[in-house]
Design a protein around this nucleic acid. Structure first.
Lengths: 191, 191
DNA sequence: ACCTGAACACCGTTCAAGT
DNA sequence: ACCTGAACACCGTTCAAGT
């Protein structure tokens, strides 16, 4: 008797995977390296995650949920003008992307069939953006405006952490330019 | 004597890799599947590419060069107003991304250490964008403006092909909104 | 000069057997 | 109920041997 007590957990496994991802890239996230990091043998992981694809999906979900908490905390003063709130959200997302660049690049990426954060987590993370665009352009135009802002911020930070800006110049300035232009332009368009 | 004549080529290998990538995703691009598709055994590939990472880099380069040709061909009438040229470039990029969604998502992505298209190919592909932003906002502000446009278009198409827009609504409209907003907003800001 | 078969280390995954 | 060792198919890569 005395069945084996859990020596690890799903949360610890996901955290280990995220650490390995940020440290050494996605190809370094193997069942063996993750298992070693949480102190078990590879087969034991299958008691906590279905397979590697499910582990990556859980990693994406974890990242999405953390981002959702960060953005919700940043956007806690709806009395501010929407442009100010938007700049704060964008800045927080960029900081998040710099803290977890590889996990952030996976937020909206194609990770194989059915491998992405569930709609609930994604919806929750994007909610602050939609709330701000609602204040900015009204409820009917809020979704496309949020998509535009998200696409820009995600594309920019993904390119940045991949080292895709290789022509010199001030990268910070370009990010601020994008957010400012979109904030003002969307407001002007969305009467 | 009569040393073995090449039964395949680097170009054929890259093309096979791209086909496999678009058909079944990056994890389906193995040395074995690529070799089978070009009609050789896996070890033969190493006479043409250093390793799998180099093959993926060559794939990214090939994609970047093709995009460069497409964009250069689209932007062949510098007499048009920059907003029109910009819309044409953006539309061509989106078409390209829909034709080769997985390869396009790799254009500016982190594919491992040193695995991305060389600066020359990337610079050539982005040249039409910089030329248009030069016409739009002047030479000093052209680079950040081009970065903003590229980040938006790349982020948007990557999200789109990954299936990240899951809240309904008109995705085409959102793309047009982004390009219009940026074209007008950047011009207004870049006197 | 390129191709192949054989070989190796590694990876994801399964499963019977332990506690 | 979770853990492990052993096993399997597969993958990237090397290399000696073919032509």
């Amino acid at each position: 008797m005395s069945p084996a007590r859990a020596r690890t957990s799903r949360a610890a496994i996901v955290a280990a995977a995220r650490d390995l991802l940020e440290a050494d890239g996605l190809e370094a996230v193997t069942m063996a390296t993750v298992a070693a990091r949480v102190g078990v043998k590879p087969p034991s992981l299958y008691k906590h995650v279905r397979d590697r694809a499910a582990l990556l999906a859980a990693l994406a979900t974890d990242t999405t949920e953390e981002l959702g908490r960060v953005l919700a905390q940043v956007d806690d003063s709806p009395a501010e003008p929407p442009e100010i709130r938007l700049r704060a959200l964008a800045g927080a997302f960029r900081d998040f992307a710099r803290r977890s660049p590889r996990a952030s690049a996976m937020l909206f990426a194609d990770l194989g069939p059915g491998v992405h954060a569930p709609v609930e987590a994604a919806g929750l993370a994007v909610r602050p953006v939609i709330e701000v665009t609602t204040a900015l352009v009204g409820p009917t135009a809020a979704l496309p405006a949020a998509r535009v802002l998200t696409a820009f911020a995600y594309g920019f930070t993904s390119m940045e952490s991949a080292g895709a800006f290789r022509l010199g110049g001030d990268v910070d300035e370009a990010f601020r330019l994008g957010i400012s232009t979109l904030a003002e332009g969307l407001r002007a368009a969305g009467h």
